[in-house]
């Protein structure tokens, strides 16, 4: 589904990703772990198409298409979803309105009929139960005045409604208490599907206790330095990231 080859990217003049290779197949869940500043969020944002990131070398194929050549919204409509580390507030725009507009934009792109208000509400209320969210959140402005946990749950709600083919969760676990973490994990687990794939970007192992990945990759200094199964996460939990310094490529210390 996703083939990343020798991907280099910079933020401003500063190179952050220095040759990422990663292949994700349908049905798989990949966890990308690494210390702060290793390039985890940059990778997520490059895949979603954020404009202040410059790809300097390498390629990304998504379902046979050149992902890097696509506009942000084209990627989204093709099923690439990014759950934001810091969800954005949009004053005055109702949550329900954004969700409906987004879903219908994607359905339209796929040649499906747009859902009317009634059909949409039925769908979204169903998904909200899953996320244990109160309906009142539908009518509040997008993320405005939401707590940290509510914002993250709201991201997963959007994911549940849009049913993306490839979901990238950027530090979705950060700032969540244990109860909220479980709810989010339930939501994510319910979306696992043989035809969909997920990339979980996280600093901590605790997310991986509630969502079991098929593969774990360790990112350091802009490169994947180790890959393995779920057991790698446990190893990291015990040893921390400090030992990576010696394994980091080209002898560079971990990027800041």
């Amino acid at each position: 589904m996703l083939i990343i080859k020798e991907l280099h990217a910079a933020v401003g003049d500063k190179p952050i990703l220095k040759g990422i290779n990663l292949t994700v197949r349908a049905g798989e869940v990949h966890a990308i772990m690494g210390p702060n500043g290793s390039g985890k969020s940059t990778l997520s944002n490059v895949l979603a198409g954020r404009e202040n990131m410059t790809v300097t070398a390498g390629s990304v194929q998504y379902l046979g298409q050149d992902l890097l050549a696509m506009e942000v919204e084209e990627r989204a409509r093709a099923g690439v979803f990014l759950a934001f580390q810091y969800p954005v507030e949009i004053p005055g725009v109702g949550n329900v309105y954004l969700l409906k507009a987004a879903l219908n934009a994607q359905r339209k792109h796929r040649g499906l009929p747009e859902l009317d208000a009634m059909e949409f509400l039925a769908l979204v209320k169903d998904k909200m139960k899953l996320m244990e969210m109160s309906e009142s959140m539908l009518y509040r402005a997008v993320n405005e005045g939401f707590s940290g946990g509510e914002k993250k749950r709201n991201e997963i709600l959007q994911m549940a409604v849009l049913e993306p083919t490839l979901s990238i969760l950027d530090e979705t676990d950060s700032g969540l208490d244990i109860d909220a973490l479980k709810i989010v994990a339930n939501g994510v687990n319910s979306l696992r599907h043989p035809e969909r794939a997920m990339i979980l970007v996280t600093h901590y192992q605790r997310l991986l206790e509630v969502i079991t990945p098929d593969f774990v990759h360790v990112l350091a200094g802009g490169r994947i330095v180790r890959s393995g199964g779920p057991e790698l996460a446990h190893e990291l939990e015990k040893q921390g990231y400090a030992w990576l310094g010696s394994e980091a490529p080209e002898g560079k210390s971990s990027a800041t």
Binding site: V72, A76, L98, A102, L103, A105
Partner: peptide, 10 residues
């Protein structure tokens, strides 16, 4: 960026 990432045009 957020709105476009959800599939809306600019």
């Amino acid at each position: 960026f957020f709105c476009r990432q959800r599939g809306l045009s600019m």
